[in-house]
């Protein structure tokens, strides 16, 4: 395993009784990366994050976080991790500041000035003394983030950090994640807000039924299905021919009379050659960039 990785999963698996939550998962998150972890509900994202945090024991495989094995080296490694798993877990009978105080005491070594600084950072200074039971979901989410950032962790593990936030709050989270990346913090992020993932993540992984369905950059995922938009003089005739081909059955007329079609090999030049061989000369041929949502839904079709 690479010592330069923040998270390394090798053949990771988890079963709960007869149900398999995660199976044979191989994944590496580099240090300093903002890594998006996606998948429909029940795909195994939260279970994987819990394994990373030592909360759930893997049934199979190996797991290293910041160079240490989990769960063996948990005591050394986990103090350098800032977790926010599912809904923010907070002591409702305590104030926002006291929640940070309790966790600062638990960790030790957190300077006293850090707590007001963090309350300011997450926009809760005015409500710092209020009981958390009186906080809205969005405010709890912000406090959960403050808890995760309490000790300037080397790795942030964030499960749905934008949950319950309004659009302005989501934008602030995005800015916060970028600041963390600039500081060199690794961010392992799960989110259903695909637009946000697209904007902040260097790489993503998509989980489907507990197995890895994709890992790579957002850009390569958007262009990876091999769809092209082709300008042709005789689009109608070309469409008839294309639909007769085993690889072109789902070709259709797209925007501005251009034909959207999948390449037989995924490469544009092979599509061009096929068209030319059939007597259709392309005026233009461009790769179709799908948005992340379309790519995500295609990969996880029928899930969630």
């Amino acid at each position: 395993m690479s010592s330069n990785a923040a998270i390394e999963l090798q053949g990771l698996g988890k079963r709960f009784g007869r149900r398999t939550a995660v199976e044979d998962l191989d994944l590496t998150v580099g240090r300093g990366e903002v890594f998006g972890f996606l998948g429909p509900n029940g795909a195994g994202k939260t279970t994987t994050m819990r394994m990373v945090l030592g909360l759930v024991r893997p049934s199979a495989g190996r797991l290293r976080v910041l160079g240490g094995a989990i769960p063996e080296d948990s005591a050394e490694v986990l103090p350098r991790v800032g977790p926010l798993v599912e809904t923010p877990a907070l002591y409702l009978h305590l104030s926002g500041s006291d929640n940070l105080r309790v966790l600062a005491a638990e960790l030790g070594g957190v300077p006293p000035g850090r707590i007001p600084e963090l309350m300011e950072l997450v926009g809760l200074s005015d409500r710092a003394g209020d009981r958390v039971s009186r906080y809205s979901l969005g405010m709890r989410q912000r406090l959960g983030l403050a808890v995760a950032l309490l000790h300037r962790p080397a790795l942030l593990v964030l499960d749905e950090p934008a949950n319950g936030l309004d659009p302005a709050g989501i934008r602030e989270i995005r800015a916060l994640l970028r600041q963390q990346r600039d500081r060199g913090t690794t961010v392992f992020l799960s989110s259903h807000v695909l637009g946000e993932v697209e904007r902040v993540c260097d790489r993503i992984a998509i989980l489907r039924r507990g197995r890895l369905a994709y890992t790579g950059t957002v850009e390569s995922l958007r262009g990876s299905a091999g769809w092209f938009r082709v300008g042709l003089d005789d689009a109608d005739q070309a469409l008839i021919w294309l639909r007769d081909q085993p690889w072109g059955s789902d070709a259709h007329l797209g925007e501005s009379g251009l034909v959207d079609v999948r390449s037989p090999t995924g490469r544009g030049r092979d599509l061009n050659l096929a068209l030319a061989g059939a007597g259709f000369v392309a005026d233009s041929l461009t790769a179709v960039q799908r948005d992340l949502e379309a790519a995500f839904l295609e990969l996880t079709e029928g899930e969630g």
Binding site: V102, A105, E106, R114, L121, H151, R152
Partner: peptide
């Protein structure tokens, strides 16, 4: 949210029994 705290390296907290006890007392 406002500007972030001054940039700095990660801190190295050390959870111990004494720290855990302090938190439980709070």
């Amino acid at each position: 949210m406002s500007s972030p705290p001054a940039a700095g390296g990660e801190e190295s907290p050390t959870p111990t029994f004494a720290n855990a006890l302090r938190a439980e007392i709070i």
